[in-house]
């Protein structure tokens, strides 16, 4: 298994929150301290909107890359530029890098801070993505984490874990499922799940779609 800590390019100089994030956090902290709100209840509300945040165009991006070799090349060269050029959104977080799954290498992304999740493409991070157990196990035992998600990869497929930094975010470009020859981009997009772009899942089986 490919697991190398030098690949984990941590940002060592502290973290950053935008002015808006700071103001929201300050409100939440003060109101929770005084008992006016319950942070757990806030989380429940936000979770209900997990898929309603951001343009959420990851599936269309992946389907396009499966169908259009020129776009795929552009996506792997510079995902931010390629996605903006598609016209799906005005801006994508500073540096988005798309990493391609192949029969030899499966990719997973991990990060603690939701600000380092490519929410413009994938929506809000699921709760497990932010949890400490996922973070540490994704790094130490990615194959075990995949097994928990019901994903079993061939033993000779290496797993590479990409740890987001404050400047760089990742998305996984999953492999196009067999049996989808001749499918339109629109139809292909229905196979692309959020988890398949985080690397904790595979695209849906075309037979079940």
């Amino acid at each position: 298994m490919m697991q190398n800590h030098e690949e984990h390019d941590h940002h060592e100089n502290g973290s950053e929150l935008s002015e808006m994030q700071l103001r929201v956090r300050a409100l939440e902290t003060v109101l929770a301290e005084k008992g006016y709100i319950d942070p757990a209840a806030i989380d429940v509300i936000i979770e209900a909107y997990e898929t309603k945040v951001g343009p959420h165009n990851g599936a269309r991006v992946v389907a396009k890359a499966w169908s259009d070799p020129v776009f795929k090349q552009a996506l792997l060269a510079n995902a931010s530029e390629a996605i903006v050029a598609l016209g799906l959104m005005n801006r994508v977080g500073d540096h988005l890098i798309a990493v391609e799954n192949t029969p030899r290498q499966h990719n997973m992304i991990v990060c603690t801070l939701c600000s380092c999740y490519p929410w413009e493409v994938l929506g809000l991070p699921p709760v497990w993505y932010k949890s400490a157990p996922y973070r540490s196990r994704a790094v130490n035992d990615p194959r075990g984490v995949l097994a928990d998600f019901g994903v079993a990869l061939p033993a000779d497929t290496a797993i590479r874990v990409w740890d987001s930094t404050a400047e760089t975010r990742f998305m996984v470009l999953p492999m196009r499922p067999a049996g989808t020859e001749g499918w339109s981009e629109e139809r292909l997009a229905t196979l692309v799940t959020r988890d398949s772009m985080v690397g904790t899942g595979l695209p849906k089986n075309p037979k079940d779609a």
Partner: peptide
Amino acid sequence: PVFGAPWEAEAFAL
């Protein structure tokens, strides 16, 4: 409701 960024959903929830 739809949100442009996570903090917007947080502000809505508050």
